[in-house]
Simulated scan of single mutants.
Amino acid sequence: MTLSLWGTPDKWHYTSLGGVEDLREAIIHADLSPVQLSRMPSVGTLALAEFGGLGFSTGAIGGKINISGPLSADCITLGTGLYFPPGCRQWQHDVETGSLAIFMPGDVHDALYVAGAMYAAVTLSFERLEQVAADLEVSINIRKLGGSGIYGGRLAPGLFARMQHLFQEVHTSGRPSGDAAGALLFGLVTHFGTAPAITSSPSCPPIYGSVLSRAREYIHEHASESMSVADIAKAAGTSPRTLHRAFRTLLDETHIPMSTRCAWPACGRISSATPRQKTAWRRSRTVGA
């Protein structure tokens, strides 16, 4: 399906990730807080487009990344995991390939992606959503569905397989297509028009959740400064032991990130290394494995 009903993209923005900072706009117009949690450099691609009151975003992630923050102050975002390997989480809940989610205006997105993850999303106003639904002869009332959360059901297998193929081409060729955006919009709007049940809402263990939130805020505010685990734990109002438990429980991570670039000091250097240096580093990791 193409976007002939709603127009065509004036311009796509395609980015090859040079570091975790490039994921601040993992969703179009968002200002997110990404934290690299793996030793491997942040690699992958992003493609963003906006036209006809519709914003499209897709990302292919090549590392273990935690991304948090609101996606939009006044628009709704509908999204799906095109490829979610084991270990991916949304709001501390496990998600898998084909998972579907709604992000309401102002609500915080909190995701954990692992290498190989790929997502696609559309962002639009409530009014534009109703117009698109009417064009597709679908009755939809997102406000009554249950708010931000992970929703049950899956897209039709044939349509979803086509979306996977189209967006895979987006990330390998660097030429996003209206067909990919059209298939995504059609699939998500028609699915949520069936009023699926919400299966998981934004939540996390109350103690660990608040500890992680305060720790992450401190790390971002002091990203350019030297800090220790004890400093982060003190800012989070807890002990180093509890801080480690929070990261292990919620992010499946045993190391505490000392910056927004990476959980290990050496990774900051790797993220800005030359291609030759990165190749040598990868080979050293393979030999030592």
Rank of each mutant, 00 (worst) to 15 (best):
G116E: 02
Y218R: 07
E225Q: 15
G87L: 02
P265I: 03
Y218W: 12
G55F: 00
G209T: 14
S16Q: 13
T80H: 02
D231A: 06
G69K: 11
M258I: 15
Q90P: 15
G44Y: 02
D31N: 14
V114S: 03
G147D: 06
S42G: 09
R261S: 12
E253I: 08
V229G: 02
A60I: 07
G153E: 01
S224P: 13
S99L: 03
S201K: 15
A115M: 05
W281G: 07
V20N: 04
A134K: 12
H29A: 07
H109W: 11
G52K: 09
S271A: 07
P9D: 00
A235Q: 06
R214K: 15
H13E: 11
S99W: 02
T45F: 00
F103N: 13
C262E: 01
A289E: 12
S213D: 12
D231N: 14
R214C: 03
S271E: 10
L46M: 10
D231I: 08
G52R: 11
G149R: 09
L112P: 13
S148G: 09
S224L: 10
R143Q: 13
A273V: 06
P157S: 03
Y113N: 09
Q164Y: 04
S177D: 06
A195C: 13
S99Q: 05
A120R: 05
G147I: 05
S148I: 07
V20I: 10
Q131L: 11
A120Q: 06
G158M: 03
P70H: 06
T249F: 00
C262Y: 01
M40S: 14
A233G: 07
V132R: 02
G87A: 02
R89A: 12
V132C: 05
I219L: 02
S68Q: 11
G182C: 09
R276D: 14
L159W: 06
R282Y: 08
A273I: 05
E221M: 09
A263Y: 05
S148M: 03
D10W: 02
C88T: 13
H13G: 06
A111K: 07
T2I: 11
I140A: 01
N141D: 14
K278A: 04
F186C: 08
P240V: 01
R24Y: 05
Y119V: 15
P34Q: 00
E96R: 13
R216C: 04
D10R: 12
L212K: 14
E221Q: 14
